Simulated assay, not measured.
Amino acid sequence: MLNLAYSSASSFCHLQTEIFGTQVKPAIVHRDLKSKNILVKKDGTCCIADLGLAVKWFSDKNGVDVPPKTLVGTKRYMPPEVLDQSLNRNHFQSYLTADMYSFGLILWEVARRCVSEGIVEEYQLPYHDLVPTDPSCKDMREIVCSKKLRLSLPSRWSSDQCLRQMEKTHDRVLGTQPCFSTHSPASKENTCQNVRVTEHYNLIQQKISLAKAHPKRLSLVVRGHEEELEAFTNVDPEHSHASEQL
C-alpha cells in the first residue's frame, strides 16, 4: 500500500509542480483524478493518465488556461467546491485543492484493500453506500455539499498504525470537519485550500522522511521532491503535521 500511495503521490506532486530550465514544464492540475486514471506498472510504480481536462498554470502570465465551465470531471470524485460551483476559476490553487480532494478518495480505495490482522474489505467505489451506481451531480451535491457526508472508514483502521495515519489524512484532505467550519462559500473554499495545500506539503515531507529511513526501498519513488518543497512557499511549515511514519 505504501508503494502505491507514495508512487501515485509522487506523480501527483510532479504534475502540479512547475519546472524551470531547458525543459520547462508548467504546473498542471488534472481535474479528473480517479482510480481508473492511475496506471500501475509491473514494478508497482504509478503514473497518472488521461489529461484531457487538465489545466496549465503559466507563472510568467500569472493566469490559468481553463475554459469557462468548471463543472467537469467524474461526478463521484468531484469536490464540494466544484459540485456547488463555488470554485474560483481564476485562482490556480483552487484547482490544485480540488485535485487533492479527488486524490484523497483514491487513497481511501487503496487503503480499503490493505490487509491488516487478516481482514480486508471488498473493493468499492467512493460513496458506494450513499449514491446510485451512476450518480448525477445532483446526487453528489446532496450528499457532499448539503448533508456534508464523507466516506465511511472501517473500524479496523484505528487499530493499525499505517491505516490510522490514512484515517487522519482522510479527515484532513476530504474536509470532514475543517472545510465546513463556516457557512460562507468563499470562506469554505479558502479553508479547504489551506487544509489540502498543507496536506500536500505534508505528503512531500513524508516521502522525504521515508526515503531517508528506507533509501533502497523508496529512493526511486521520492527522488527529487526536496526541491518541490520550495513550490509551497505560501504554506507555513510550522503548521505541518507530517509524520515520519505512515
Rank of each mutant, 00 (worst) to 15 (best):
Q23K: 15
A49S: 12
I119K: 13
F58A: 03
I28F: 02
K207W: 06
L174A: 01
T176I: 09
V235G: 00
S152L: 11
S59Y: 11
L220C: 08
K69Q: 11
K36H: 12
W57R: 02
Y123R: 13
P237N: 01
D171I: 12
S136C: 14
K147T: 04
V115N: 15
K25D: 00
S184E: 07
E230H: 12
A242N: 04
N190C: 03
Q93R: 09
A98C: 13
T182V: 06
L203Y: 05
L210E: 00
E81H: 10
C114N: 10
Y127R: 09
P79H: 06
F92P: 05
E227D: 02
V72Q: 08
E199I: 05
V72E: 11
K34N: 12
T70L: 14
S184Y: 01
K168C: 10
L33R: 07
S7E: 08
L149T: 08
L33D: 00
Q124D: 06
T74A: 07
C179G: 04
Y77S: 07
V40T: 03
A54S: 13
C114L: 10
F12K: 05
S35R: 03
K207C: 12
P132G: 02
G175N: 00
L51G: 02
T17Q: 13
V66L: 15
L153Y: 10
S184D: 08
D50W: 14
T97A: 06
R150D: 00
S136R: 15
S10C: 06
Y6R: 05
Q16I: 01
E226F: 08
A231F: 11
R113N: 14
H14I: 10
E167D: 03
P237I: 02
Y95I: 07
Q245S: 01
T45K: 07
E238D: 05
V221M: 05
V195F: 09
C114R: 14
S181F: 12
S11N: 03
P67Y: 13
V55K: 01
T22P: 13
V24L: 09
S209I: 01
I19K: 06
W157A: 00
C162N: 11
G21W: 04
L149W: 12
S240W: 03
T133D: 08
E121M: 15
D129Y: 13
V64C: 07
N234G: 01
P68S: 06
E226H: 05
T191N: 03
P132T: 14
T70V: 15
K216M: 03
L246V: 03
E117C: 12
S136E: 10
K147P: 10
A213F: 01
G44D: 07
N37R: 09
D99K: 12
S158N: 07
Y77E: 00
W108R: 08
S158H: 14
M78C: 06
E18M: 07
T74Y: 14
V173H: 00
E117G: 11
N3F: 14
V222L: 04
I38L: 09
G175A: 05
S159F: 15
F92S: 05
Q165C: 10
I204C: 03
L2N: 04
C145V: 15
L39F: 06
I119F: 14
H214Q: 12
N190H: 09
I143R: 12
G118I: 14
G44E: 01
A9Y: 03
T133F: 13
E230G: 02
Q85F: 15
S219R: 01
C145Q: 01
T70Q: 06
K25C: 06
K25M: 13
H128Y: 15
K25Q: 13
L149G: 09
R223V: 08
S155I: 15
H214P: 08
K25W: 11
H241D: 02
